[in-house]
Nucleic acid binder design. Structure first.
Length: 310
DNA sequence: TGCCAGGTGATCG
DNA sequence: CGATCACATGGC
């Protein structure tokens, strides 16, 4: 298909810590990454298809070691700093890594410090963090997160993924870069303009159920008023309530204080933290006070921990 | 089979 | 406000 050397265009970054593709891609923040047989992931993001491989290096948690990484000082003492592993992205140039994937994977953030801070005086969080130690919150495209999380409501993850794929296949533009990685033709999320032009009948093959109307209406609003800029804008969109708005805020707007409360987080808050069942108001307040600006990170560790063990 | 899923909008008191 | 209900579609 493409030139034979295409597969040699990869880039490897060394010394990457607090990173595990399984944790990152299976923690429910994204829906278009798929695990390969060798444990690497193929995914569609930033208008291209890439393969992500992470090698933890010797042992992964190599006790001492001096990471020598540029970030230098690691202030807080007594912890088990990881030496870090290597992250390989294919196809990818050094420029693409620096300009696209470094931000996408939030590599400039010290997750070690975040985990330490959250775990302080919190045995529950300590377990959750230890379970999902390699989670990073991806910097995803805003429109994609809007579409994805409108679809996500009252829905399960395998079906959400199916809906998004069918939506892209039926109405999205083909993705060219990196297409050789997949054995099928692959398409991007349809633009607001494209979705705004559709009827509910047009969307029938995607089997979105009652969410089809939400998507069309939201697309039309975005075409008219532009993309949302804050939580209030988000909440004005059709099919976007408090939970979905928090997800979009967190994953698409990098508001890392957002704390989406879904059925799994409610289960954590009740079963583990002992809050009254289904009292979202109390849960939101509890999270604000306990996790503050780190609410989004806390939520991801807790969500992944609870969902994977049920 | 029946319950449930990363809830929201509409419609009541 | 706050509680209740319908909503499409399937995963398990």
């Amino acid at each position: 298909m493409n030139d034979i050397t295409a597969e040699d265009r990869y880039y490897t970054a060394e010394g990457i810590v607090d990173f595990d593709p399984v944790h990152i891609f299976e923690c429910g923040q994204c829906f278009r990454w798929e695990q390969c047989e060798d444990g690497s992931y193929n995914g569609i993001a930033e208008g291209r298809i890439v393969n992500i491989r992470y090698d933890a290096g010797n042992g992964g948690f190599g006790g001492s070691g001096s990471p020598n990484a540029g970030s230098g000082e690691c202030s807080s003492g007594s912890d088990t700093r990881k030496r870090g592993g290597s992250l390989t992205i294919t196809p990818c140039t050094e420029e693409e890594f620096n300009e696209i994937w470094y931000d996408y994977f939030d590599l400039g953030r010290d997750y070690g410090a975040i985990k330490e801070c959250l775990s302080e005086n919190d045995e529950i969080m300590k377990k959750a963090v230890s379970y999902g130690y390699g989670i990073r919150i991806l910097k995803q495209d805003l429109w994609e997160t809007i579409v994805s999380f409108i679809i996500s409501q009252n829905n399960n993850i395998p079906r959400i993924k199916g809906c998004i794929e069918r939506l892209c296949e039926n109405f999205g533009e083909p993705v060219e870069q990196g297409a050789y990685l997949l054995d099928r033709k692959t398409y991007d999320i349809p633009s607001p303009e494209k979705l705004a032009s559709l009827s509910e009948e047009d969307l029938a093959p995607v089997r979105l159920g009652y969410r089809a109307r939400y998507l069309i209406e939201t697309a039309r609003t975005v075409c008219e008023k532009g993309l949302p800029g804050d939580f209030e804008d988000l909440s004005a969109l059709c099919g976007v309530g408090p939970k979905v708005a928090n997800c979009i805020s967190l994953f698409g707007m990098q508001d890392h204080a957002s704390f989406p409360i879904d059925v799994w987080v409610m289960k954590v808050m009740h079963d583990l933290y002992g809050l009254p069942e289904k009292d979202k108001k109390a849960m939101a307040q509890f999270a604000r006070e306990k996790f503050g600006d780190l609410g989004g990170f806390a939520q991801q560790y807790l969500f992944y921990y609870m969902r994977d063990r049920s």
